[in-house]
Amino acid sequence: MKKYTRPLRMSKREKRDAWTFSAFVFPNFLLLGVFVFWPIVYSLYLSFFKWNMIAPRKTFIGMMNYVNMANDPVFWQVLRNTLVLAASTVFVKLAMALGLAVLLNRKIRAKDSYRAVLFSPTFTTSVAVAMVWGWIFDPNFGLLRVFINAVGLRSPNWLGDVSWALPAIIIVVIWSGVGYDMVIFMAGLNNIPTELYDAAKVDGATPWTCFWRITFPLLSPTTFFLTIVSVIGSLKAFDVIAIMTDGGPMNSTNVIVYYIYQNAFQWFKTGYASALALVLFVIIMTITLVQTRLARRWVHY
């Protein structure tokens, strides 16, 4: 609640509005305060302690959690996995989504059906999806083996192989997200004035030139937006990894949120997990701030 101690005259109406405003936003701000803002402060605090959540007392250990983190080879591996996941999914997913959006944006039959099917993974429960994919990747009886054998190759032991497990996760993440990106690209394509294409056609431009000279540059705000959304989305990846690989084998698919979960809720290293959470926070904040900066400079919405 707000108090007005300053000698400022408010009309009766202003006063009533101030109260109504406060009452309207109070639930939201209370919850945001407790469950969104306070956690940042509390995570920072916890990151200076050793605590297993059961013990009544927390042991202050200064910067030791951060020192341990710097010396923890798994942390660096987790960070690398997280970045590889983010970079590779974004690149492949966006390229595929753009291709599909261009195809779907033509006047064709059954457009809505195609769109609905391609979009459907966006809304499906990731746990269930991960279950099916785990079975698809089964090296002996999985669906994927059919196609791999068909082209004369031998199926890798996807989720059990250090070098194939992360690619498998990347495939699932792309599969789940390509429809969403496609729909956003389609919206972006619709905003490009058709006159531009008509003019280009008059000049005898091929569709290929049209794409690179008109579509691609004018789509840059959309591409930029999707890049950021995808990167942040894959930094938060958890469900698929928890179900399909538990971060393994040998941490080859362990990513930062899963590592936070393991430390906090499997091994009860609350302080260390809080330090990790803070690192995640800093990474995401940096990306978001860079985005706002760059968006102001580059993009004309």
Partner: peptide, 18 residues
């Protein structure tokens, strides 16, 4: 130890997978 079985599991993994 809290993480004991997990560390030993990782050991077996390093031997047989890694």
């Amino acid at each position: 130890l809290g993480k004991g079985t997990e560390i030993l599991r990782q050991m077996v993994e390093k031997l047989l997978v890694g």
